[in-house]
Simulated assay, not measured.
Amino acid sequence: MKMKKEYLVLGLALTLAGCGGGGSQAVSPGDTTLAQDMDTGRDAVGLERLAVAEQQYRAAGQRALARDDVTAIGDAGYNLATVQLNENKPTDALTTITATRSALATRGQTADDAGLDLVQAGALHRLGRENEAAAAAVRAAAGQDTDVTEKAQLVRGLIADDSGDHATLASVAAYFATLTGKVPDSWTADAREVEARNLLATAGSSQTAWQDAMQAATIRQTHVDYRDMARALGVAARAADRSGNTQAAAQLYVRASQSARQAGDTVAADRWAKQAGSAAAVDPFVEPAAPARKK
């Protein structure tokens, strides 16, 4: 079955591979069950029903195994690992990636898979295994798919910034500076975030870094990419603090924390809430505690 990749922003700016539907041209005769499972998974991702998407991509993978379709196995495995990563299950994502690579190798596909490398880099980064994550991101960036390459460069920049690797961060910023002309909005947001991080790492203009990070956040808000939006707000908070505007920094940390928490990134939410200090706001939409039972 011929697969067509459909690029959707998901969490750590990863993309999904699609099967059937959405204008793809499947080889006839095709497998409508497999195509439907993939399409339903993609639709569930669009509605942020990640548990449903995980179930559908698992079903698609099982159908792909029944079909002995190496391309479908690779796409289903990639999608399943991507969804698991965005459910904050990085260990599960790594397990899926390893099993998918094994299934592909059994069927004679031994070449590097940049998409799987990309998800692997994101999962390892979530687990704090930065050296391994950086190596996987480099492999992903060397692939032939321009969308995967761009997202891999973003992940390289995030890893480098968190690791204090200013040289790599600067090289990633230089890569994004070469992306001229008409590019997707998501790429523009990635470029602005990386540039903001690079400015802060090199003692550049904190005001410009603040503006760049806010531009990235605004683009991602428009594209309903809230986890990455929250991360950009966190960078903007750092820049505001570096600019000496502690009040604005605290407010931005609160905004980043509240957004990340609702997007499911509780680790980042807790970190930014701590950085907000006494400015940390109470969630106005939290469910009230159940009343205590009378004895």
Rank of each mutant, 00 (worst) to 15 (best):
residue 127 L to V: 03
residue 128 G to N: 15
residue 128 G to E: 14
residue 129 R to D: 15
residue 130 E to S: 14
residue 131 N to C: 02
residue 131 N to D: 03
residue 134 A to N: 15
residue 136 A to I: 00
residue 139 R to S: 08
residue 139 R to Y: 04
residue 141 A to H: 07
residue 141 A to S: 15
residue 141 A to M: 03
residue 142 A to V: 12
residue 142 A to W: 02
residue 143 G to L: 06
residue 144 Q to K: 01
residue 144 Q to H: 07
residue 145 D to T: 02
residue 146 T to Y: 06
residue 146 T to H: 04
residue 147 D to R: 02
residue 148 V to G: 06
residue 150 E to D: 12
residue 150 E to N: 07
residue 152 A to M: 03
residue 153 Q to W: 05
residue 154 L to W: 14
residue 154 L to M: 04
residue 156 R to G: 05
residue 157 G to K: 11
residue 158 L to T: 04
residue 160 A to T: 06
residue 162 D to M: 00
residue 163 S to A: 15
residue 163 S to G: 15
residue 164 G to F: 09
residue 164 G to C: 15
residue 164 G to H: 04
residue 165 D to C: 13
residue 168 T to E: 09
residue 168 T to V: 11
residue 169 L to V: 08
residue 169 L to S: 06
residue 173 A to S: 13
residue 174 A to C: 10
residue 175 Y to H: 07
residue 176 F to K: 03
residue 176 F to R: 03
residue 176 F to N: 00
residue 177 A to D: 13
residue 179 L to Q: 05
residue 182 K to F: 01
residue 183 V to C: 01
residue 184 P to E: 04
residue 185 D to V: 09
residue 186 S to Y: 00
residue 188 T to N: 00
residue 188 T to G: 03
residue 188 T to R: 02
residue 190 D to A: 14
residue 192 R to T: 07
residue 192 R to P: 01
residue 196 A to V: 11
residue 196 A to Y: 09
residue 196 A to K: 11
residue 201 A to L: 10
residue 201 A to R: 08
residue 201 A to M: 12
residue 202 T to K: 05
residue 202 T to G: 08
residue 204 G to P: 14
residue 204 G to Y: 12
residue 205 S to K: 08
residue 205 S to I: 13
residue 206 S to Y: 05
residue 208 T to I: 11
residue 210 W to K: 12
residue 210 W to F: 09
residue 211 Q to Y: 06
residue 213 A to T: 13
residue 213 A to R: 09
residue 215 Q to N: 12
residue 216 A to P: 11
residue 217 A to T: 13
residue 217 A to Q: 14
residue 219 I to M: 11
residue 220 R to P: 04
residue 221 Q to I: 00
residue 222 T to K: 02
residue 222 T to N: 15
residue 222 T to M: 12
residue 223 H to L: 15
residue 228 D to V: 06
residue 229 M to Y: 08
residue 230 A to R: 11
